[in-house]
Each structure stands twice: as structure tokens, then as C-alpha cells.
Design a protein around this nucleic acid. Structure first.
Lengths: 344, 344
DNA sequence: AAAAACTGTGCAAACGTTCCCAAAAACGTT
DNA sequence: AACGTTTTTGGGAACGTTTGCACAGTTTTT
């Protein structure tokens, strides 16, 4: 059961021209008479000709497709990034292939290699929380695959990167908690492997320092699985409670929602007494109970910027050697501004 | 800047064989001596040979890719369906290309045609709420493109379909509201174009009938944009309130969350007095305030089943003429079971 | 009026596969 | 040793494009 369309050959035959002439007319390049061009275009329109992208790809040795690696599409931050990526990619004639790691290094490597073997023209990637060894990416990069990192980026990889201002976002959230009177502000965060974890920790520390609050390591809990394993998260929350935090700054989308759930499940009586400020791009945050202050990342824009950088690398005539790290500002959405808190 | 790999030709040259022999050894088909095969495989392994999928696609006239059309990936129901699709597709050697309609017919048509021109081997689609004319799909189908519908399906299109038991889900949710003492149960739903809207309305009516409650058309409100336009949704909620509903059965994920938001925004004083039961696959439902009873669809499984059906069509030797409509059961997750309601 | 330059077109190769067909090699039978 | 049969291999076309090169026809230059 196959699906047939007309080809350049069919058009050439029907019009008594050569395939090269037809190709030229269609691509609108090289010298060709206005007349023939019109003739060809009219006929192509009539038979609803669609160039076969596979043949084109084979000839041009590129696929006009971009690979995307994220941990989870069922995560608002990443789905917004993907929307940003698509908005640029489709305009520029690329389509995207999305792969999920579910925070597994093994899965990430498998997916990247699968995409590379599918001859993608470039890769946009946010590393999984497990990832420590990125040599497989270096190899692909060395072979000529353009790569742009976003959100979770490695430190020592010379290519374009796009991140949020994690330091400032963390600082703002922590400061907000302090300014609303909290003195024991804990920090719940992701795997130490991740760049975002380190940067956000710095922001947290800086805010404490500004208000002369001592930094206590025992108030910082890491979740290796980024909230994918609820037991791990519950354990972390449980370990935090004996220190009686009155505020928690949480470092990621999934941890933020997961932590509120864990609190409600294990310690409902204190859940609404602890103020929470966390990174999250969930658009449902207004419905949450207990409510929280959220740090929103410019996810859509991050996707756009990363895609523009990637396409510039793909289409560069000569190897790119100057790389940028773009840092986008986060936005603090304060609890007070969120509707519905009167219910608490 | 291009990215090079070894080809069958390189292997043939290096080993002093012909490309046909190498191809045969690699594909493990046709007669070939054990010895040569081993030799070729060992060498291929050594140089890390990866068949060029584009060349293969051109030759075999298929791309090993499946197109997916959904309204929004930032919707838990759809992202779970996509996970189900991927779980099967990757196992069977296909990759997937995801497109979003954002509930626009124009966008849907554009995306489908773009995918078709990218030579996908088959299409999995949940129609947009605006879609009324599916002739463009009929044309593609007639040309030989296998199509399987899921969730939002057309009535008069002879192909495989996979849906949830919308009637029963709606019945259960409405019955639940009635059994918890509600007597004025309104119904907030999607565009009338959608199959799911009609089926869920029937379930709602059946539950009312069972308990001898009169059906009142004014208690049913349709949202053409499925909650994508918050003004429309707010307007619908506003129009419902004068009838003093004590319960609302809501027909979709986005409407459910949107309605709670609208209630909290416009009528906070009554928001928590109205019981809500709605279709939603959000995993954050436990955090919501006011809380709600939810009808969960087996989204992951729906994706799996749809993909299996699609691949069976793609790989069928002869045109398929017997079609199935698979109906999967929903699950009612009652408010009482949800943690955290003690906060209300 | 011849030479030079330009314009429009066609031929054919190439991209990396798969697979039909034929040729060659290996083996068995008389 | 000659033949037939089977197994293994190679040649080459095809998938649908793009594009360098050559060539014919036209226009411009000298």
C-alpha cells in the first residue's frame, strides 16, 4: 500500500523538457527563461507537485531536521521550550524530532545516537540529571554535528548555550522568602551534576548572605532523580522537617510540585505553614494549595534563541569558532499576586 | 560543515567485495556465505558503520516515520498519549514527528500536509476542535496514507479508531456528583464538532435520567475553543452561575483547570461550594483547590493501541478493509481519595 | 563579418541504498 | 573428464533529486 505523487521526471516528460530544467524552474535558481519557469510552475501547481524531501536530503546530504532531547515533554517548562523551538524551526524549513530521556543517561545516549543515525542536521539538548560523561556528544560534535545546549548545560564544551539567569532567579526567590519573614529557609534541589543546580545554589547562598543569615548545609537536600522517584523526594522532605524550616526554596518544576504533594501526604498539618518559592512553569500554579511563589523561566524564548543559534551553525559556510552563552531573565511571580490565596 | 560516516561502498572497497554483497551481509537476507557475512559484519562494527536511513528510505519508498497531530503537547492527556505512541513506535523501528494544532483547523491542515510532504508512512491524529471538513484527510487516505484516529474521531471515516469510553466516563462522573447530593449538575464542554463532546453529553444525560433528574439545556455550555480562550470560558462559567449549580461535570482537561481558575477569579466566594468532576489527566490534581473528582483516560495505553493499529496498516501486504474502533475504559478518581482535601 | 560573451537548455553523474539478473565458483554425479 | 546443479558473488539499474559541464543559439563587441 503505497502512496504516490508526481515527480520531476513526470513533469519533464509531460512538458517535453529535461529534468534539470524542471528542477531549476522549481528551485528558482540559475539562469532560466521566465517563460519556461512559468510553464513549469503552472503545471507543477496543476498536478500538485511536492518535491520528495528524501531525495533532496540524499542529494544535499542534509535532512532539514533538528533533534531535541529533553527529560520529559509532560513538563511545562520543556513543552514551552519545544513550542519556541518549533516556532522558529518551521519558519526556516526544518522539522523537529523530539526524544525524552526520563532523566536516564543510558536513554539519553541511546536517543542521541538514534537521532544522529537518522541524520539530523543539528541537536538541541538539555542534559539528563544522570549525565556526567558527555564524551559521546564530543565525538558527534567533532564529526561535525552542530549542538546547542539549553537549560542544563555542561561547563566545558565549546558551543552555543542558552540558559536562564539561574543565579538571579534563585536569589530573588530566596530573598522573597526572607523578606516575607522567613528565617529558616531550606533548599530542595536537583542532582549536583546539573549546571542549574550549582547556579541556583549560588543564588540561594547569596540571598542568605545579603541578609546575614548563616548558610547551613543540612538545609540543602539534593534529589538525584529530579523528583522522578517520589520516594526519594519524600525522603528528602522528611529529612528537612526536623530543622523546622519556615520556607523552602525549590529548584525545579517537578520538585516544586512533588514537594507540595509530599508535604500534603506526609505532614498535612504543617504543609500550609511552610512558605514555598520554587522554579516552575506550570500554568496551573494558581490552583495549588498550599500556594506558592514561582520563578518562571522564559521557556518559549529559550527555545527560540537556541534554535536560531543552532540554525546559524548548521547553515554556516565555515566552522563556527566563536560561541555565545545567552542568559535570559527569569520572572518572580509572587504569591500575593496569584489569585485564590484567600482560600488559605 | 558536514558530518561524515562510512558507507557500504567504503566497506566494499576496503574488503574487495561488491556493494551488493556487503548489503546482503548487513541485511542478513538472501544467500550469502557465513564467512563473508562474518567478515563484513566485523569490519562494519570496526568502522562503526550506520546505514544511511535516507538512502534506504528513498530506495524503499518509505520513511519509517509516523506523524502525530494533537492540539497541544502541554496537555497531560496528550503528552501521555505521545509517550504511549513512542513506546511502541521506537520498538518497531519508527520515529515520530509531533505537530500541534492549537485547536486551529487551518494549522491542522497545514501540519498534516507538511507531514505528508515529508513522506511519513502513517498518521495518528486527534482532530482540532475547529475541524469540520476532513476532506483533505480523505484525499490523503485515498492516495494511500494510512491514518488512525484517536480521542477525537470523525464518525464517517472508515479506518481504525481508538477512543476512551466517553459515555461511561461521563456517566460515572455525573453519577458521582448526584450521589454526593448534588441536584443541579451543570455540564461544561467542548465544541460540538467533537465526537468526545457528543459522547460525553450522552453519558451526562443518561446519569441524570437514571436518577430522574430533568435535563435542562441551559445547564450545558459549549466552549468552541476548548478553553484555549480564557474569555470564552469565563463567559460560559458566568452564564452558568445564575442557575446556581451545586455541581459541574466538565468534559475536558483544559476546561477543567480553566473552569476552576475562572471560578476563583470571578466568584471566589462560591468557588469552593461547587463540586466539580471533570475529565483530566493532570497529575497535579491532588494540589488543586478547590479539589475535584477526575475522570482519567488511559492515555498511555491509547497511544500504544493506536500505534499498533497504524503499524499494522503500514505493514499490511494488501489494503486493509476491516476496521476496528477500540474503546478503552476510563477511571474515576474520587475527591475523597485525593490527598489534601482536609485543607478545604 | 568574425570573434567574444551571454543565455537557456540538456546530458549525465552523484547521493547511499536495495535487489534483479547473470556470471562465476564450488560441488556432485555419471 | 564432462556435465548439471547449487551456492555465492558482482554488475548495474533504480529510487528522485541537484548541479557541473557542454553545447547550441542569440546578442554584443571589435
Amino acid at each position: 500500500m503505497r502512496f504516490e505523487t508526481s515527480t520531476i521526471k513526470d513533469i519533464a516528460k509531460a512538458l517535453g523538457l529535461s529534468t534539470s530544467t524542471v528542477s531549476r524552474a522549481l528551485r528558482d535558481r540559475y539562469e532560466i527563461s521566465e517563460e519556461t519557469k512559468k510553464l513549469v510552475l503552472a503545471y507543477a501547481e496543476k498536478v500538485n507537485y511536492r518535491a520528495n524531501p528524501i531525495a533532496r536530503s540524499l542529494k544535499e546530504r542534509r535532512s532539514y531536521s533538528i533533534g531535541i532531547i529533553v527529560s520529559e515533554i509532560a513538563n511545562n517548562f520543556f513543552s514551552q521550550v519545544i513550542n519556541g523551538i518549533e516556532s522558529i524551526a518551521y519558519d526556516r524549513g526544518y522539522h523537529v524530532i523530539i526524544s525524552q530521556t526520563h532523566e536516564s543517561y543510558k536513554q539519553e545516549k541511546l536517543n542521541v545516537e538514534h537521532l544522529a543515525s537518522r541524520s539530523i542536521d543539528g541537536l538541541l539538548i538539555a542534559l539528563s540529571s544522570e549525565t556526567q560523561d558527555i564524551n559521546y556528544l564530543r565525538e558527534l560534535y567533532a564529526k561535525g554535528l552542530p549542538i546547542v545546549f539549553f537549560d542544563r548545560v555542561p561547563e566545558d564544551f565549546a558551543t552555543h548555550k542558552v540558559i536562564a539567569n539561574n543565579f538571579k532567579g534563585a536569589f530573588d526567590a530566596t530573598e522573597h522568602l526572607i523578606l516575607s519573614g522567613k528565617r529558616t529557609v531550606a533548599h530542595l534541589t536537583n542532582s549536583e551534576n546539573l549546571s542549574i543546580t550549582r547556579e541556583r545554589l549560588k543564588g540561594y547562598k547569596a540571598a542568605l548572605a545579603k541578609y546575614h543569615i548563616e548558610f547551613k548545609p543540612e538545609l540543602v537536600k539534593y534529589c538525584q532523580h529530579c523528583g522522578m522517584h517520589s520516594e526519594e523526594l519524600e525522603q528528602a522532605v522528611k529529612e528537612l522537617l526536623p530543622y523546622k524550616p519556615d520556607g523552602i526554596f525549590i529548584s525545579s518544576d517537578r520538585l516544586t510540585t512533588g514537594c507540595i504533594m509530599a508535604l500534603k501526604k506526609t505532614n498535612p498539618e504543617i504543609a500550609h505553614k511552610i512558605a514555598i518559592a520554587g522554579f516552575t512553569n506550570s500554568n496551573l500554579v494558581e490552583l495549588f494549595s498550599p500556594s506558592l511563589t514561582s520563578v518562571k523561566q522564559p521557556a518559549f524564548e529559550m527555545g527560540q534563541v537556541a534554535t536560531e543559534l543552532l540554525i546559524s551553525m548548521i547553515e554556516a559556510k565555515r566552522p563556527v569558532t566563536e560561541f555565545e552563552t545567552k542568559i535570559l531573565d527569569t520572572e518572580l511571580v509572587r504569591m500575593q499576586k496569584i489569585l485564590g490565596n484567600r482560600f488559605l
